[in-house]
Design a protein around this nucleic acid. Structure first.
Lengths: 341, 341
DNA sequence: GTGAAAGCGCTAACAC
DNA sequence: GTGTTAGCGCTTTCAC
């Protein structure tokens, strides 16, 4: 201490404040932490002084000592599509809700984008940093195996993604396969016979959506799904979609898009080709993002409840931090019928 | 140490590792930090051991000791529109780019949503936490005064937002007034005579956009701008827009929307009323988000270069952390002509 | 109810 | 080159 500025003592540490209040650092710590064993008057004096000097305890120091940081890590692995996946509207909305929920629970959020190809060690590095009390992984990308491995030795982790039979890591996510079934059923009810799946079917969540749709096509005795792979970035996807539509012109009468973003692009491409929707081609998206209401015509889609997902992630994580064992949480998606199918 | 698991020594601290390597903790620290003054063989041995045991130094401890955390705080004040502002596409995209840039510079990102009304102390709390080396504030919201105050005593802060004559805090942002001028000029060139501004004109960035448009209307001798206030959340905005359009039917022939999101909603509402765009009403948005290409017809808008903004924010912040004094950075927006005006 | 003291895990002088 | 030592700022026994 001793340092002065503007004629006023600078109080940077709990010790500075203790000196000012004429008590020991321990007492200040107890008072500020709201522990019971402090004289009401002493506490009031300390709090007043703290407020007056704008003092707040250093969280690094506190964290080090208490072995808990009050920070939750949120990792977004960018597996397939290195660039821009983070700006995917779905993930961003989920992130927003996570920020809300975590704040509400008194945690801070440390965000990390990771490129697993360039850094096989991403998850261990994040966990081992000592900076976070737990981690939420948004999207399994192509890192399923890696995540499984880590889950073995590290409890406070929850993942947004797809659930596989018998997997080890705790996951929260929609029942993608069911979603795919709902989509295909709707396409068929709207008159589709040859269904295409639009999107990268190697991504695990998308593969499950596709599988659900394939189930239904088979059940109805329809030809197998055509897959139209795309990247996630709008620029590349647009080109790819245009090429796919040209290649399959007239042979496809129903499209199940892996996301609303892709569906919206597809709708634009269909319009450009003069294809009537839903007259000639029916289209169903996935997510029910805001854009789904704004396309022309508005998009029939499969809704995921993003807020519920975020709540589930945080709830399960906190329980795991508390030492509880938790099951995965599978949320039911829901068909939203608008005008494209 | 001493603790064992799977028949293998658990190495959690630098001291554990030192014992294993037969050196002192100091040497391990130096070796792992890549300092020059370590024997090559010793370093190799230590690194091998660290890899083998998956050891990484605790960042809290390191941060405490070095008085630098390697973490940059990103605060998003939710001033006017408590809910959902964070999921605003523009902010989210900016956040994605920030994450990229910061990662690239070796920093982690701590995200905090703040509700200034409920917590007048938000910025000081964030800064005073001791967890961050600097802070980026995304959006001034209605917190201009608060930010100015803090800027006086705290250097490593950069804000995304609008630049005011003579302000103290370092800001990166588009020239909103210029953007407003470009928008109005385009509307007028497309035949508009009575221009409306759509959006919350009490938000400082939006006010500047409106002012730019008003400048131009005055210059052309047109009637003053009509303001159609809205909230940012799509649900409320939709209702408000519908009400505005009903109230001003036939009297407005040009609309300058504060954001593309609002413009897209407005377009939907105009279509619902059977208003021809750009025949009867011309429309210009702001931001050039992906949605601008996908509306029907595609949106004429004012582009902000988000990636450049993120780069600027990070660059200036790092320079301020290094002690440099920096000027604000004003980016030129750009008219993108599509089909709505 | 409060003080004294011992660290949390790491780094950076300072010795040698 | 490497070991030793003294903290970073805080919390938490353990005394009293």
């Amino acid at each position: 201490m001793g340092e002065e500025r503007h004629g006023r003592t600078v109080v940077r540490t709990i010790t500075d404040l203790a000196r000012l209040a004429g008590v020991s650092p321990g007492t200040v710590s107890r008072a500020l932490a709201g522990k019971s064993l402090v004289n009401a008057k002493t506490r009031a004096r300390i709090e007043a002084l703290a407020r007056e000097h704008g003092f707040r305890p250093n969280q690094m120091a506190s964290g080090l000592r208490r072995q808990r940081t009050g920070v939750i890590g949120v990792a977004i692995p960018l597996g397939h599509d290195t660039r821009q996946q983070i700006s995917d509207t779905f993930f961003m909305t989920l992130l927003g809700h996570l920020a809300d929920e975590l704040t509400h629970e008194g945690y801070d959020l440390m965000l990390r984008r990771v490129v697993p190809d360039a850094d096989g060690d991403w998850l261990d590095r994040f966990i081992g940093s000592g900076m976070i009390d737990g981690v939420i992984v948004i999207g399994q990308s192509d890192q399923f195996a890696r995540i499984e491995e880590v889950a073995e030795g590290y409890r406070p982790m929850v993942v947004w993604g797809n659930h596989q039979e018998g997997q080890r890591h705790c996951v929260v996510g929609s029942d993608n396969r069911l979603g795919g079934r709902l989509a295909a059923e709707r396409l068929i009810a709207a008159g589709a016979r040859q269904i295409a799946f639009l999107g990268d079917a190697t991504a695990i969540e998308f593969a499950a959506r596709r599988a659900g749709a394939a189930d239904v096509a088979a059940r109805f005795g329809l030809p197998p799904l055509v897959t139209l792979p795309t990247h996630l970035s709008p620029e590349r996807a647009s080109e790819e979609i245009a090429a796919h539509l040209a290649a399959h012109a007239g042979r496809i009468d129903g499209i199940f898009a892996a996301t609303d973003t892709l569906a919206a692009l597809c709708l634009t491409a269909l319009r450009a080709r003069g294809v009537a929707v839903p007259g000639a081609v029916r289209l169903v998206g996935f997510d029910d993002l805001p854009i789904a209401r704004q396309t022309v015509p508005p998009l029939t889609t499969i809704r995921q409840d993003i807020a519920a997902g975020a709540r589930g992630l945080v709830d399960l994580l906190l329980r795991r931090i508390a030492g509880e064992a938790t099951e995965s949480l599978i949320l039911p998606p829901e068909l939203v019928v608008r005008e494209t199918a």
